[in-house]
Nucleic acid binder design. Sequence first.
DNA 1: CTGTATCCTAAGCGATACTG
DNA 2: CAGTATCGCTTAGGATACAG
Lengths: 138, 138
Amino acid sequence: MDTMSHLREFGAVDAYLKECASRTVLAAIANKWTCLLVDALQDGPVRFGELRRRLDGITQKSLTQTLRTMERDGVVVRTVYPTIPPRVEYSLSELGQSVVALMAGIRRWSEDHVPEIMAARDRYDLRAAEDPRPVPVD
Amino acid sequence: MDTMSHLREFGAVDAYLKECASRTVLAAIANKWTCLLVDALQDGPVRFGELRRRLDGITQKSLTQTLRTMERDGVVVRTVYPTIPPRVEYSLSELGQSVVALMAGIRRWSEDHVPEIMAARDRYDLRAAEDPRPVPVD
DNA sequence: CTGTATCCTAAGCGATACTG
DNA sequence: CAGTATCGCTTAGGATACAG
């Protein structure tokens, strides 16, 4: 039997399966920039330049690219005001709003457990110095 | 003032800041393999080979690497049973368990919104065919 | 202001071969 | 069984320059 295609027809929507569409969705939303952008947009429309300032360290290219992907997935709505100079606002669609709690939760969890995790890293790296096993960088 | 270092000392734990440790934590957990691994381990210890089978499409290298990073961050506990052949089990630490609900939530959201998102992609790509703007792949 | 285009480097990942 | 080591490709992403 062919489990590689027509997954929706067979009702097999399972992110554990390589060829399942839900895997591409998971890959699309499970990354830092998407997470921060959903979080940043939760209180209403934000302009491109403002997003660039809020997401410290993101390049214009990455921001454009991530927003474009989110727009394509129907998570974000892009509104262009035909003024001079142009003004573009990004906001969450209803679909985007449905994932706000999850994304905000992840951001908050990351912030809340920094001391714990930094300590764990220090401990691991210390033990790895004695017992030589490969150490992931950051 | 220097906002680039000693963030913990100043109490500025903010994932929006490039140099903040919480940003590295966010980057570490906000990716598909980590999400699926936390989800896969939520019901108890699982062996390496079993994880490789469950996470369809992951290579041995990526699996080892991701598990190592999670172990270093204190999210996962690695237990080696000195048998022949060797048997290694991975389980969630208490820290890991504290993020299960979020990760499972993301996996479920991805699966639940597949039709909606696939439709959005089709719509976007169709409009992009007429009005030529760059289209993200996947 | 909000992008696009290009170049270039670094990281991710698959494939393969090998080990205790 | 559970890894390590290496190669080589593909992609992500930073820097820079330029445009509507």
